[in-house]
Design a protein around this nucleic acid. Sequence first.
DNA 1: CGGTATCCCGTGTGATACTG
DNA 2: CAGTATCACACGGGATACCG
Lengths: 143, 143
Amino acid sequence: MIVTNIENQELTIENKIEKVFDMEQCENVLCPIKDILAHLGDKWSIFTILALGQVKVARFNELKKQVAGISQRMLTVTLRSLEENGLVSRQLFPEIPPRVEYTLTSLGHSLLGQMLQLAEWATSHRDEIDEARKKFQEKKLVF
Amino acid sequence: MIVTNIENQELTIENKIEKVFDMEQCENVLCPIKDILAHLGDKWSIFTILALGQVKVARFNELKKQVAGISQRMLTVTLRSLEENGLVSRQLFPEIPPRVEYTLTSLGHSLLGQMLQLAEWATSHRDEIDEARKKFQEKKLVF
DNA sequence: CGGTATCCCGTGTGATACTG
DNA sequence: CAGTATCACACGGGATACCG
């Protein structure tokens, strides 16, 4: 029974892969996966989403402190991109001085869940990766 | 009861975020998440892993066909990086003509699961993202 | 405060040619 | 077949200065 379960799971993985590759066959940039991953895969998007997941609501400069290391320019660019893709909502209060508040949309919050899983994977397999790197370096030294 | 469940889940997410941000406080590149995501976040790594998940074992040029669009150079670079991080194993057969076989390691297979979830997320939220983009374009046209 | 505009450099990546 | 080497170049992204 257990074996059957494993086999079933393997089949599911295979099916998922097939689906992914079916979608990928579109040649141009319209391929959704390529496209979406290209937008959300860069580190600034990831960290901005994580930051907004933590503080819920943030103004521009608050966010800039949170993300730590990001330049003003890249924060602007990243936020625009996230807004364009419906992950972040931007609310402007026409006061003086101007105030702008950023929050995650429900879609953004949904993506946050994925990001967290990836982050969890990264941390939980950190040691294995470190070890693999050391082995690789040793191999290189042999030659 | 349902409300309690949701609250508990929210708390878990918050806790996860805190953990992630705790780890992120290291300033240099050694921060595991930044580091690992930087290596595995780029599209060629993702597609190569997906391809290897599909074909299980592949030689260099087979893989090149599978990934579709990748240059010889980038496939080499990507495979070296994946090998260095313990996700892909490379077996060289010293024949003439030479033969090299690439497969996913168990670590790579584990990451494949994550990739698939991300891909699934991307496809299942494709419409929402498209709609958000259209709205954003309309907004821009107003000004 | 919350941007935009401009400049500029380093790196990532494709194309091409060569090798064991 | 499975790469390496080299060049060329677009683009990401930092620094700086200015605007509403």
